[in-house]
């Protein structure tokens, strides 16, 4: 039984309250596809029944699982490829020159989902910049969903996931076979600190960042929340830092204190001094 408008309104209220995410009317199909597995494991006959249950019992642990399911993004290793090329060819070499004295770099991957993006960055650093292992590297990856963060820390991926976009030489070099799955080697996993962060709320007390990835997540927020997040990201960054958004996203008409830099096929943003 498909969900009706009152049940969809329950969901809109939940994701707005817990994640400040705007779920537009018309996205009922998304609710059905994301929540059907949650409904099944919770013993509900339908997504509609699941939503009525979380509405009737706002303290139910199901609330967290519903919000998690709605805020998890599809991701893959080397997704869109070009941002990682920009990192390898321009950004890291430039930052290594600029930070040659202090020998320290701070990176943040926001909305890490199942971890492919931060691990892509980690493997790129290991592969092309081994000298960074002598630097002080603070690499945090955040997500709103505790279950996703637990997955990230495990660093285990299915065959289909490693098939998507991961160069075979990286599979051989940085993964171990773990039964039918593949697990990142301990020295790769230990590079990244996975932290629960709701982007709509204040960020943790982190050092100022040199590189921030926040791809394909701002699209879910209202204009006001988006503006607030961009303003706080600016304050969280070093003045010569680099900020990545998703390919279809921009700071334009949201927060004008950014300069867009075109690096080959990817756009990167830098805070305006």
């Amino acid at each position: 039984m498909p969900i009706d408008s009152s049940e969809f309104a329950i969901l809109q209220g939940l994701v707005s309250k817990h994640a400040a995410i705007v779920l537009d009317t018309g996205k009922e199909y998304l609710a059905e596809s994301r929540l059907t597995p949650v409904a099944r494991t919770a013993g509900c006959a339908s997504v509609a029944e699941l939503l009525r249950r979380v509405h009737d019992d706002p303290r139910s642990p199901l609330v967290g699982r519903v919000v998690e399911a709605m805020t998890t993004n599809e991701t893959s290793f080397f997704r869109d490829m070009h941002p990682f090329e920009a990192l390898r060819t321009t950004i890291i070499p430039e930052l290594m020159r600029a930070r040659a004295n202090e020998r320290s770099l701070n990176l943040w991957c926001a909305a890490a989902s199942s971890g492919q993006e931060p691990y892509t960055v980690a493997m790129t650093l290991l592969e092309h910049f081994p000298q960074l292992q002598q630097w002080k590297l603070r690499f945090v990856a955040s997500d709103i969903a505790p279950a996703m963060l637990a997955r990230c820390r495990e660093g285990r991926y299915s065959q289909l996931e490693v098939n998507r976009g991961l160069p075979a030489k990286y599979l051989v070099k940085y993964f171990d076979k773990a039964g039918a799955e593949w697990q990142l080697k301990p020295h790769v996993r230990s590079m990244i600190e996975f932290v629960e962060v709701n982007l709509a709320r204040p960020f943790p007390a982190w050092p100022q960042m040199d590189i921030v990835f926040m791809r394909n997540v701002l699209i879910y927020f209202s204009l006001e929340t988006k503006r607030d997040i961009l303003r706080r990201v600016r304050k969280q960054m070093r003045p010569d830092g680099w900020f990545f958004l998703g390919g279809s996203e921009s700071t334009l008409n949201v927060d004008d204190k950014w300069t867009r830099v075109q690096l080959d096929k990817t756009s990167v943003y830098r805070p305006v001094p």
């Binding site: 893959s76 080397f78 490829m81 990682f84 090329e85 390898r88 060819t89 790129t124 592969e127 065959q159 289909l160 490693v162 098939n163 998507r164 976009g165 991961l166 160069p167 990286y170």
Partner: peptide, 20 residues
């Protein structure tokens, strides 16, 4: 690795020789 999807082939062709 089989089984694969169209996107798997496309991603692999994009990544092959990209310098990653």
């Amino acid at each position: 690795m089989k089984p694969f999807t169209r996107d798997v082939i496309l991603d692999k062709l994009n990544i092959a020789g990209s310098g990653a």
